[in-house]
Design a protein around this nucleic acid. Structure first.
Lengths: 235, 235
DNA sequence: CCACTATATTTGGTCCGACCAAATTGGTCT
DNA sequence: AGACCAATTTGGTCGGACCAAATATAGTGG
């Protein structure tokens, strides 16, 4: 079983899974703290801390009289990770939605980065793209370079909102994908076109082109990821 | 003082504000639970629940030996609301970043909604846009109609990731703006163009045009909001 | 004098038992 | 049947206690 640092975290994780698996219907009352404590062989304090965390996640609403589960849409994005971990292979539709959303924010970041970057910064970004062109065969190296490129643009654009969301999503998603060892296979020609467009955008300071290129990249990533998950399912 | 339901929530809020105000430097140790309990005149259990919530927010990292504050960028987006409430008038740059991000996701939602909608659904959306054309003078009615339109498109696109992020952001932002009573004044001609484009996009099922129209609307909203906040500052 | 180690202290994690206030539940009365 | 009221359940808080891990300190050896 997944062993967290503390007992309260373990309890929170168990309850969280139960709720996400719809073992408790919406608006239904959870067992009382005393009963949960007895069930988990824990003290009421530990259970209370666990419930406090679930409330912060927006999964439940605690009131005198009982804790009630809330609709999933009312929760925080921090539940995306646990939601994908529910089954051995995450829901492909959810993965696609994730990449679509993350891609939109990455594209936004690219546009702003190009908009505010000076000549020097643009040159630095362009050199990263050049490096990417050479790593077209080594997946791991290319992946690391992409992450570095997006990170560099995020630093330039300096948008705290995007950064917070990105951190949350990355923490939820990337680790899960790495754990599963899913390796998307890109269409080389398309990725080549993306890199060319990105290089041109950086050289010309064309923010719209940069936006389009990043969007295109994530579209390719979505496609590759869906295929990888399908073959994983078949294998 | 802002009175929450429970004492632990109050303590969490106080500590949260202290951390966001940088009263504790990054990586610095917070006072021990026992000392905090003494300071707030509360029991250690209440303090522990508060700290547990802050940990869930990503503001602190709790370990035997002490709780340490984490870099703001590592936190969850749930801190955006408190971050804007720190001062009487929220940071205009932060508001702009928020609207930019929210707009990008709304545009994404619009594109997907148009992509998956059948003729009937498109017609329903178009009628909402028509209604918006008539409410051009009444700010409150128009605002409510915009929210309803975006909500309808969100239901159609059925993207859980966007929905969760949107809920989080809305909960953080909208209430704060309403509380301040800031009223952005739109450029009527631009909004008129947006509505025309949106209507055309819905009639033709043109997802790219819908995306562009929503983007344009939020660009106008950003402009109007910045002006409103500036005049508020001056007045 | 400095670096390393073993010890003492601090700090978080958990448990137990108790009391209060609010919500729920169930019964009673009209 | 509906409204009202008491009994029970449930969450919120408190205090004290013990353990294990991390930190700080004193001691030792170079």
């Amino acid at each position: 079983m997944a062993q967290n640092k503390t007992l309260s975290h373990d309890i929170a994780q168990l309850l969280r899974t139960d709720i996400l698996r719809q073992r408790y219907r919406c608006e239904e009352r959870l067992p009382s703290e005393r009963e949960l404590a007895a069930r988990f062989g824990a003290s009421r304090g530990a259970v209370r801390e666990a419930l406090s965390q679930l409330e912060q996640l927006g999964l439940i609403r605690i009131q005198p009289g009982g804790a009630r589960v809330q609709p999933i849409e009312a929760a925080s994005i921090a539940i995306l990770g646990p939601l994908m971990e529910l089954e051995a292979v995450p829901d492909p539709a959810l993965v696609d939605q994730f990449l679509q959303t993350f891609g939109a924010m990455a594209a936004l970041t690219a546009r702003e980065a190009v908009a505010v970057a000076d000549a020097e910064a643009l040159q630095a970004l362009a050199s990263r793209v050049s490096a990417l062109k050479k790593h077209s065969t080594d997946f791991n190296a290319a992946q690391a370079e992409w992450v570095a490129l997006l990170e560099a643009m995020a630093r330039l654009s300096d948008n705290l909102v995007v950064r917070l969301i990105g951190n949350d999503l990355k923490a939820q998603f990337v680790s899960q994908m790495l754990k599963l060892g899913i390796r998307p296979v890109f269409r080389k020609r398309a990725i080549g076109e993306v890199l060319v467009a990105l290089e041109r955008a950086l050289k010309a300071g064309d923010r719209d082109l940069a936006h389009a290129a990043i969007t295109r990249y994530f579209d390719e990533l979505r496609l590759a990821m869906q295929q990888a998950m399908e073959s994983r399912k078949a294998g």
